[in-house]
Amino acid sequence: MQHSRWMTAGLRALLLANVLIVTACAPESQPPLTVADTGATAKGDLRVPTDYRDTYQYLGTWAVADEKVAGSKEMHIVYASPGAAAGHRANGKFADGTTLVKEVFEATTGPMTTGTVSHTKTLKGWFVMVKDSKNSHPDNKLWGDGWGWAWFDQGAPTKTTSTDYKVDCLTCHEPAKATDWTYVDGYPVLKK
Rank of each mutant, 00 (worst) to 15 (best):
K177W: 08
R5Y: 15
D66I: 02
W6H: 12
V64P: 08
L123F: 05
D139G: 06
D51C: 14
L33N: 04
N18V: 15
L170A: 05
D145V: 01
T108C: 11
Y187V: 06
A176C: 07
S29G: 10
K141H: 01
H88G: 05
D54V: 07
G155L: 09
D132I: 00
K121F: 07
Q57G: 15
T23F: 08
K141F: 00
S29P: 04
V35C: 08
K191I: 14
E67D: 06
D132K: 09
F152P: 08
A80I: 11
V48S: 12
F105R: 04
T182L: 00
P157C: 12
G10E: 12
H119M: 13
D145K: 13
T113Q: 15
R47M: 06
V101L: 03
M1K: 14
P111H: 13
M129H: 02
V69Y: 10
V117Y: 11
V104K: 12
M1R: 13
K102M: 11
W143T: 09
A36S: 11
T171F: 05
D185M: 00
G186A: 10
G60S: 06
V101I: 01
A156H: 14
T8L: 12
G39R: 01
G71C: 11
L142V: 01
G87E: 08
P138H: 03
G146E: 03
V184F: 06
E174K: 02
P175A: 03
M1Q: 14
V78R: 04
K134H: 11
E28V: 13
F105C: 02
G83Y: 10
K134S: 13
K166F: 07
A9P: 05
G87C: 06
N135C: 03
P27V: 14
A42Q: 08
M1I: 15
T113N: 15
S81H: 11
N135H: 07
D66Y: 00
A9L: 11
M1E: 15
G125N: 00
T41Q: 09
V101S: 07
V130Y: 05
A63N: 06
G92H: 07
C169S: 12
W143M: 04
F127A: 08
V48Q: 10
A95G: 01
L16I: 13
A178I: 02
V167W: 07
D139F: 04
S72D: 06
P111E: 13
T41C: 07
C169P: 04
M7Q: 12
G97A: 08
K43L: 10
D180P: 07
T99G: 09
Q30Y: 09
Y183L: 02
L20A: 15
L16T: 15
G87V: 08
L190R: 02
N18H: 15
H137Y: 13
H3T: 15
G83E: 09
Y165R: 05
T120R: 12
T34A: 03
V189H: 03
L100Q: 05
Y56R: 00
